[in-house]
Design a binder for these strands. Sequence first.
DNA 1: TTCCTACTTGGCTAAATTGCCATTTATGCA
DNA 2: TGCATAAATGGCAATTTAGCCAAGTAGGAA
Lengths: 96, 96
Amino acid sequence: MNDKQEHIAKRAEVFKALGHPTRLLFVMALAEGERCVCELQKLVDIDPSTVSRHLGALKHAGVVRDDKRGQQVFYSLRLPCVAGFVGCIDRALEER
Amino acid sequence: MNDKQEHIAKRAEVFKALGHPTRLLFVMALAEGERCVCELQKLVDIDPSTVSRHLGALKHAGVVRDDKRGQQVFYSLRLPCVAGFVGCIDRALEER
DNA sequence: TTCCTACTTGGCTAAATTGCCATTTATGCA
DNA sequence: TGCATAAATGGCAATTTAGCCAAGTAGGAA
């Protein structure tokens, strides 16, 4: 794979990470500030192990970063522009 | 599924549609103007049927629209803000 | 009509993704 | 030490996705 393809693939991985309802929900929550896994867990009705896997996917793609403090792991957004783009999506979806 | 969940799901579908290298490549090309399927086909080395399926996915998510004129089908972007968000991704990926 | 080009759809397989349960690691507290 | 809580990981089954080939539709030209 050449450089250009690799670059496109990395960008696509970011979109893919955002392309799941649970992960997008987490990212929207993180847009308002960092949250520990236990807080994100409360937003959804899925197994803690699945929450962890979703957060791992977001981290791997570069969308969030994590910071372990004591027993808890705090996640925060590395891509603040997500919120603006979501706004644009909403406007486009409305006018359909 | 309630309204809020459905809304999140629709947003996530947009991201998912953009979350594949081939589809993202097509969208970046469409950011510069409409293209027929035959032109998009030339950008990649995959079967025409697969190209058609990728475009179908983008259309289904609301990312592009299609317009049949004569023998050709022209696709164009419904989400012009994609380009700006890609720029933000690139800046974030650089500083890793 | 017949043929050609442009594109889509049906059907299939291989690979990736999602989710759970069970287990493990790490930290803090008694 | 022993125990509880927070989170991550191993392993597995069910579902979804990506890709190809073959076949189908539709428009334009001969």
